[in-house]
Design a protein around this nucleic acid. Structure first.
Lengths: 232, 232
DNA sequence: ATGCCGATAATGTGCATACATATTAAGGAG
DNA sequence: CTCCTTAATATGTATGCACATTATCGGCAT
């Protein structure tokens, strides 16, 4: 599976093995790249790639001149995949449905302006929609869009094409923020998601930016039972 | 910031620029590595590193012989950092506190056995503890440990050293699963976290494995208001 | 048309080498 | 002893080359 001993994957596996078996202990400095290359019988480049990869994963700590050490407190990194909603639903083998609940344009509340870094009073587009999986409520998409940043947003009506996909293909961002929290279902949430008020829901809030300009701020309110899963 | 045009970072930035400005459109095939190397005046290796990096980030789709294309539906990847709890609290500038609530050993429930892949009736260690930030409840750590997989777990009493840190330094895993969901506070949760029953809480469930053997299964139940944040 | 199969073109990887850069250690001046 | 300069060292990166791997394309036989 891992490939031969002299491939970067092979080196990576062997290094992991030594860390797991405590042959190299947390905090300890491991041999330098040149020595490892000699030991493994491969080029330093190969060792470098393996160790760099493990450093990115948080298993190793590398510093120039100081050398490479086994991370004392391995800050493991899990990568979350963030697909567009339609594909997330289809990937689970379910049929995607979409209902536009509201589309309006008005001066945004102060808190929204603050988060999107736009002048108070800027007229933003508000979109509220429901995504369905096999006909059942899946997630509420509650979104603000700044039409001054995204060309064509005023003309899109989001009744056929959902805002999530429209933005992915029509706007590009340089930076994004992402927060997951828990939320007690409001009466409105509960009615839309066909559940009971007070139910515990996952709320994902995402802001995306084009340079200094906030493009969109979205709250995704998932139906009960939703889980964000990944491997470490 | 980005370095000169002929560094892999420079290439990466320029490629991102072209994607953002729709100079290379989603789904479109971009020039091959050799051509790009000629255009940028650098080695193919350098181009390769830049494109490989962007492919890992989900921006590009690469296939041998078929070439490199701009991802149609950019499945962005956010990386979550998972530090040990004490350091997470200290990183926020707060003082970490710890209270062991329960430590027992008994035959595990069927559902736990199923998730940890151990025989039904296996005696597991159960640890329930509360972590505090500046004296206030921060998260409940509700954990099962398989002492047959982790040497020394039976001897550790977890009253001083918390199980989270003990495991990090005494066990190593080959694989881990990770799920975030929302949970309505039970009466017991509410009392421990000093909040009200029914409050919406973030629940992180993590299982770690050493090969085929489940090491530990933990539910982290965070106090209200907790957010998981990251950048994209 | 259909299916097999080899040529081909793209990425994936490894190697030897050179130089860049950061950081520590050592040494010298005051 | 302290501060500054300088040298040594480990990692970071770029290059040119070679070969491995794998889809895809196109031709050929059925």
């Amino acid at each position: 599976m891992a490939g031969p001993r002299n491939s970067w994957q092979g080196v990576q596996d062997e290094v992991m093995q030594r860390i797991r078996t405590r042959s190299w202990k947390p905090g300890e400095t491991i041999p330098n790249e040149a020595d490892l290359a000699a030991e493994f019988g491969c080029a330093r480049t190969t060792i470098n790639r393996a160790l760099r990869n493990l450093a990115e994963a948080g298993v190793l700590d590398r510093r120039r001149r100081a050398g490479t050490r086994v991370a004392e407190h391995p800050v493991r990194k899990a990568t979350l995949r963030i697909p567009i909603i339609r594909r997330e639903i289809e990937a689970r083998g379910m049929r995607h449905g979409y209902v536009l609940l509201e589309r309006s344009e008005h001066a945004a509340p102060e808190t929204v302006c603050a988060e999107m870094n736009c002048d108070i009073g800027t007229r933003l587009i508000k979109v509220r929609a429901l995504h369905l999986a096999d006909g059942l409520p899946y997630v509420i998409e509650d979104r603000w869009i700044n039409p001054n940043v995204v060309a064509g947003a005023r003309e899109a009506d989001f009744s056929e094409m959902n805002a999530n996909e429209w933005l992915v293909t029509n706007a590009s961002f340089t930076k994004g923020e992402f927060a997951v929290s828990a939320r007690s279902a409001s009466i409105e949430d509960a009615m839309t998601l066909e559940t009971q008020a007070g139910a515990a829901l996952i709320n994902v809030r995402r802001t995306t930016w084009d340079g200094p300009h906030g493009i969109t701020l979205v709250n995704l309110i998932y139906a009960p039972g939703y889980q964000i899963q990944t491997e470490i």
